[in-house]
Amino acid sequence: MDTYKLILNGKTLKGETTTEAVDAATAEKVFKHAANEHGVHGHWTYDPETKTFTVTE
């Protein structure tokens, strides 16, 4: 398992979190669910070198 990071750049919610996942696709599902639960919808990017997802509203 690897550690993946999410950076939230929402209009009303900003922050960072991490998750352990077997691959980037699994981490993305976890992060998108969490972002949706917090009402953050926007443009997603992924940097494979740093294993970091970013969502920007």
Rank of each mutant, 00 (worst) to 15 (best):
A34Y: 15
H41I: 13
E28V: 06
K32D: 02
T50E: 06
T45M: 10
E28Q: 09
T56L: 05
N9I: 15
F53D: 00
T17P: 03
T18A: 07
H41K: 12
A35T: 06
P48A: 12
T50L: 07
E28G: 06
T3H: 06
D2Q: 14
E37L: 14
T26V: 07
H41N: 11
T18R: 07
E37Y: 10
K29D: 07
T56M: 06
G42W: 09
L6C: 11
N36I: 14
V40C: 05
K14R: 12
N36K: 14
V30I: 15
V40W: 09
V55M: 04
K29L: 12
V22R: 12
M1K: 12
L6F: 08
H43P: 06
N36D: 12
V55G: 01
Y46H: 01
G10R: 04
L13C: 15
F53S: 00
T52R: 02
T12R: 08
T56V: 07
E20S: 10
I7V: 10
P48N: 07
E49M: 12
K11D: 08
T50M: 06
N9G: 04
T56A: 05
L13P: 04
G39Q: 06
E16M: 10
T18N: 05
T45L: 07
E28A: 10
K29P: 02
K5R: 13
H41Q: 12
K29M: 12
K11Y: 11
A24H: 09
K5V: 10
K51I: 02
A34N: 07
A27S: 01
A25F: 10
A25W: 10
L8W: 14
K32N: 05
K32W: 10
Y46K: 00
H38V: 15
L6N: 01
D23M: 03
F53M: 01
E28M: 14
A24P: 09
A25C: 13
K14W: 12
Y4D: 02
H33F: 11
D2V: 12
A35E: 02
E37K: 12
L6S: 01
W44D: 00
F53R: 00
M1L: 13
A21T: 04
H43C: 13
D23E: 03
T19C: 15
H33R: 15
E28L: 15
D23H: 03
T26S: 13
G10V: 08
D2E: 13
V40I: 15
E20T: 12
K29A: 13
A25V: 10
N9C: 15
G39D: 06
H33Y: 10
E49T: 13
L8K: 01
T12A: 09
W44E: 00
T3S: 06
T18W: 13
E16W: 14
T3Q: 08
K5P: 01
E20G: 05
H43I: 14
T17L: 15
N9P: 04
H43Q: 13
G42L: 03
G39K: 06
D23P: 00
V22H: 10
W44Y: 02
T12D: 11
G15P: 04
G10F: 14
Y4M: 01
T26I: 06
D47A: 06
A34F: 15
F31M: 02
G39F: 09
K29S: 09
G42I: 02
K29R: 13
E28K: 09
K32I: 10
T45F: 08
A24L: 09
F31K: 00
E28I: 08
G15K: 14
E16R: 07
P48C: 06
K5L: 07
T19A: 07
V55C: 05
M1R: 10
A27P: 01
A27V: 02
V40K: 03
N36W: 13
E57I: 07
A35M: 12
G15Y: 15
V30R: 09
T19S: 04
T52K: 03
T45D: 11
E20P: 06
D47N: 10
P48W: 07
W44N: 00
K29W: 09
K14G: 05
A21W: 01
T50H: 07
H38Y: 15
L13D: 05
G42M: 03
V22E: 11
I7M: 05
A25K: 10
T26L: 05
T3K: 09
E20Y: 12
E57R: 03
A35Q: 03
T45E: 11
Y46C: 01
K11Q: 11
A35V: 10
N9M: 12
E16H: 09
T52L: 04
G39H: 06
A34W: 15
H43A: 12
A25G: 08
V30Q: 09
W44T: 01
K11M: 13
D2W: 12
V22T: 12
T26E: 13
T17Y: 15
A34V: 15
T50N: 09
G10K: 04
D2P: 07
H33P: 02
V22L: 12
G10T: 14
V22N: 09
G42N: 02
T17K: 12
N9S: 07
T52M: 03
D47P: 00
D2A: 13
T19M: 11
N9W: 12
N36C: 12
T50Y: 06
W44F: 04
D47G: 02
D2N: 14
G39I: 07
L8M: 13
T3R: 09
N36V: 11
T52V: 06
H38A: 15
V30P: 01
E16P: 04
E57T: 06
E57G: 04
K32F: 07
T50P: 02
V22S: 11
A27I: 01
H41F: 15
T19F: 12
F53C: 01
H38F: 15
A27T: 00
P48V: 08
K29V: 11
T45V: 08
E16G: 06
T56D: 08
T54P: 00
A21Y: 02
E20H: 10
D2G: 09
E57D: 07
F53V: 00
A35F: 06
I7E: 03
D23W: 03
V30Y: 14
N36Q: 13
K32Y: 06
H38S: 12
E37T: 11
H43R: 12
A34S: 08
Y4Q: 02
K14P: 04
L13M: 14
